[in-house]
């Protein structure tokens, strides 16, 4: 772990399925059933997270970005590898990692008042004394842009944007240092989305928070992130500083992804999309996972898995066709 990293993810792999229950295992042993399929949701992912940085994780559905976020937040245990967080321990009882979810409707308990939603965790973990809890909850709400006087209401009495703010207040109430935002603005309207993105940036400045920002919306990720991880079928295919990745993507998949993003200034675009669907993670292609859709695929790509290695500019990419730092320019048409 480097000195300024507050989170270190080392060779993390997550597999789902496989073992099956007692009967399934019995049947497969006597040859009456196929063994359960194993999904490699995340495969051998490593990265460091520096204090105060925003790491954007992008990729299409099924690429493992949410599974990765859940492992970082401690909601899932990795099958292999380790995740080490280095909390400063400034506040007793503080929980270093919190998660903000996509859907502000299903992530708040409809039968609890907002004061309880936000106040329960700090009370249980002894972060605030019981007599100060009420003021603490109101302060958290105000900080996130919801009127603290409404703390005795239920979640359904708020609009979608306000509910997302309550979700953020709930996460902040246990004084975390890392927030994992899994598609936290995707379900919101454009004008509300801008409000929440601004709130995230304000909180970062005020509280020195570190974010893992998971989204399929590359526009938002580009706006907010310092560094980007691009994932495809459970593996990192490219990572590096956000500016460089968006200005000069190296991996063919990253290129396809960035070129596919609709933008306001692209009028009457003739889209030249990348072919095909994302393959099933149960039976991913051999070699480079991206080769069946890659316009540049070589015979080598079908058999050999490209390793994630350093390329120019402090970046990493997993592609056989990218030259090592010395020869930077490659022509991909």
């Amino acid at each position: 772990m480097t000195s300024d990293a507050i989170l270190s993810v080392r060779n993390v792999t997550k597999r789902f399925g496989g073992r099956g229950d007692f009967i399934a295992r019995g049947l497969s042993r006597i040859g009456l059933a196929e063994p359960n399929a194993v999904v490699h949701a995340v495969e051998d992912v490593s990265f460091d997270l520096r204090k105060g940085e925003v790491l954007g994780v992008v990729g299409e559905s099924g690429c493992g970005k949410s599974t990765l976020g859940r492992m970082v937040a401690g909601l899932l245990d990795p099958s292999e590898g380790e995740i080490v967080a280095q909390a400063s321990g400034a506040t007793t009882g503080a929980l270093p990692m919190q998660m903000i979810f996509q859907d502000p409707f299903s992530s708040l308990n409809p039968r609890k008042r907002v004061s309880e939603l936000i106040g329960e965790a700090p009370r249980v973990h002894g972060i605030v004394p019981p007599d100060a809890l009420d003021a603490y909850v109101a302060d958290m709400m105000d900080r996130c842009g919801v009127d603290g006087n409404y703390r005795d209401r239920f979640a359904h009495q708020f609009s979608g944007g306000q509910r997302q703010r309550i979700g953020i207040a709930r996460a902040l109430a246990v004084r975390p240092e890392i927030l994992v935002c899994d598609e936290a603005v995707s379900a919101l309207d454009v004008s509300i989305q801008a409000q929440i993105v601004n709130l995230f940036m304000d909180l970062r400045d005020e509280l020195g928070l570190t974010y893992i920002f998971i989204s399929h919306d590359l526009g938002v990720v580009e706006h907010i992130s310092d560094r980007i991880l691009v994932m495809y079928l459970g593996r990192i295919v490219e990572s590096g500083p956000a500016e460089q990745i968006f200005a000069d993507p190296q991996h063919p998949y990253t290129r396809a992804l960035i070129e596919g993003v609709p933008r306001l200034e692209r009028r009457r675009t003739v889209y030249a999309p990348i072919k095909g669907d994302i393959p099933s993670p149960i039976d991913p292609p051999k070699g480079c996972h991206f080769h069946p859709r890659c316009p540049l695929a070589q015979p080598q790509c079908k058999v050999e898995r490209p390793a994630l290695r350093d390329i120019a500019g402090g970046r990493q990419a997993a592609c056989h066709l990218i030259e090592r730092p010395a020869k930077k320019e490659i022509s991909i048409g």
């Binding site: 454009v190 004008s191 993105v197 601004n198 706006h223 968006f246 933008r263 306001l264």
Partner: peptide
């Protein structure tokens, strides 16, 4: 105008997005 400004544009990384106050 507000809708257009709410969409993150290129070359404004890290800046505050212009937001429309309130909601519909």
């Amino acid at each position: 105008r507000g809708l257009i400004d709410s969409v993150p544009a290129r070359g404004q990384r890290g800046q505050r997005l212009k937001q429309i106050p309130g909601r519909m």
